[in-house]
Nucleic acid binder design. Sequence first.
DNA 1: CTGAAAGCGCTTACAG
DNA 2: CTGAAAGCGCTTACAG
Lengths: 337, 337
Amino acid sequence: MRITVIDVAKAAGVSRTTVSNVFSGKGKYSNETREAVLEAAKKLGYKPNLAARALITNRSRLIGLILPSYVDANTLTNSPFYNIIIDSIYSVLRLEACYDLIIYSVPDKDQLARVNDWIDMRNVDGILAVGEYENAFLQDLNAKGLPVVLIDNYARGAFANFSYINSDDEMGGYLAARHLLEKGHRKIAICGDLAGPLMQKRQQGYRSALREAGCPEYVFDQTAIAIAAPFDAGVHFARRLTEQGCEAAFCTEDMTAIGLIHGLLQQGVQVGRAFGVIGFDNIHFGKQIFPRLSTMDQNIFEKGQTATKTLLETIERQARRGSRLILPVSLVKREST
Amino acid sequence: MRITVIDVAKAAGVSRTTVSNVFSGKGKYSNETREAVLEAAKKLGYKPNLAARALITNRSRLIGLILPSYVDANTLTNSPFYNIIIDSIYSVLRLEACYDLIIYSVPDKDQLARVNDWIDMRNVDGILAVGEYENAFLQDLNAKGLPVVLIDNYARGAFANFSYINSDDEMGGYLAARHLLEKGHRKIAICGDLAGPLMQKRQQGYRSALREAGCPEYVFDQTAIAIAAPFDAGVHFARRLTEQGCEAAFCTEDMTAIGLIHGLLQQGVQVGRAFGVIGFDNIHFGKQIFPRLSTMDQNIFEKGQTATKTLLETIERQARRGSRLILPVSLVKREST
DNA sequence: CTGAAAGCGCTTACAG
DNA sequence: CTGAAAGCGCTTACAG
């Protein structure tokens, strides 16, 4: 049925070892042999079977991406951030050729065990994980001895074998708040998801900037209102912010900022003039709303690409593990501030 | 190193056949045997190797998703539609367990050959393809004899073995235009991507509605202006629409409508009152802008789920191929009209 | 530079 | 109900 190395070997008048050598570029063979093999393969339409190859080489050429899914099944739908990450990963995998990505989005702790099984059964060559996970899970991951690159994770001390890529979240929070201060605002809120090390960094930056300026903090914590979706949380906070007399807000992620702007607009508030809003992430969406969203750019695409390249270096060339990278962030001024 | 059936068989005091039988649910074995095998497997931490299984069963438990990528590497980033599709696919694959999705987004014709190789090398169990492709490619696909489900593709006659899932695009165009007419508009434009069978259906519906009402057509074709990104095209058309005295527009996809609204707002046009805009798709984004976008809902999530279930039925239970499904669309009225 | 042999981890007839 | 044997399609020492 299927064309195999044996068929090609027969057609080219060589052994299967030679066919294998030609296709993998290993071993030695004459140029004529090479031509003959390639021609036979082409004529027969031979395609190597990756599963068979994986069995013997112990390389599946599969990369596993682990994503936290906050709400429901709609991980990608609800998070433009992940979409950019996935695009960026593929942009690298296609260049290196023959790698594929499989995704596991983890809605709750019960699933964590299944992710573990999944990694083993698929025999992935490496793991890319976005966001924060409980320690027990990271320990399991570590025990597998696989190359792992973590994005937006601050559990750095404990796992020396993991590589990390983060953005300068604290600086981002600081610069965002400073920008609002420079625009003349004094009553500046922080709102959105404030839980976990990453968001705490952003909040810390905000806090430093306000303290420097001698301004009070207005904290609107999404986890306190039990709304899981960032956009909806933003909408929800709009009224509370104006009621409390705030003049501007730093949202810890763009989707919350977009929700906040939506809510403010509904109230008839002139966003940008009467009320400044700045987000964090710089998803495309931010420049498609009106007024366009000011934000902290963290170059998500580059982040994902770098993570993928780092992983591939480890897989293919046994690059040293445990690299730590903090990417700079930069202010993007638009009309919402 | 790795725990295999042999280890489990030894620990449980049975043969590897029995272990295999227990794990696949095939063959016969006593309840005690089953317990013993399961316990041994658990104690040893045995996980079946899917690549090995694939080799013998010829089932990779991999589904291939083929996506057209119009612009650049940013397929997912630029198309919220695809994100919903992917989420919907995963929502089904996780239920059926042990299936994974691998994605190939095809930027140009040169890549089509590589997709072919990719399908063979990964030995996918079935193909989900979104959008339109040239006939030669579909023929290649057909020749493989794999289960194929096409979403939003109108090449229906030629490939009896493919299953198709479409939305009622013509009705959608009709209802969208009718809605604009009922709002009292007379000068109603159609704008965006108008190329290909699917978009032509939408245009045809628009045309029928306008003819019935005796209104003139205003056609703004995105392909004519060589802007690949739907949002940017929408922005671009805003000025031209008002210059031509149009009062409303039906955009053939939401992202274009969102761009159009953005452009109109920039001009100071009161979208919703002075100018009606309706889109097509009902992506989440449409209700996150302000004013919120009226649109034709095509229940993308359900569409993707149905496609996936159809594919799985064919793969797992040899369901008859070549089913044809047209999903209804419905009007979603919001503030942009 | 080339080939015969062994084996990756599993499943599938087949015989008992 | 259970086990020994063959084989999926490939690669990897190893011998020539």
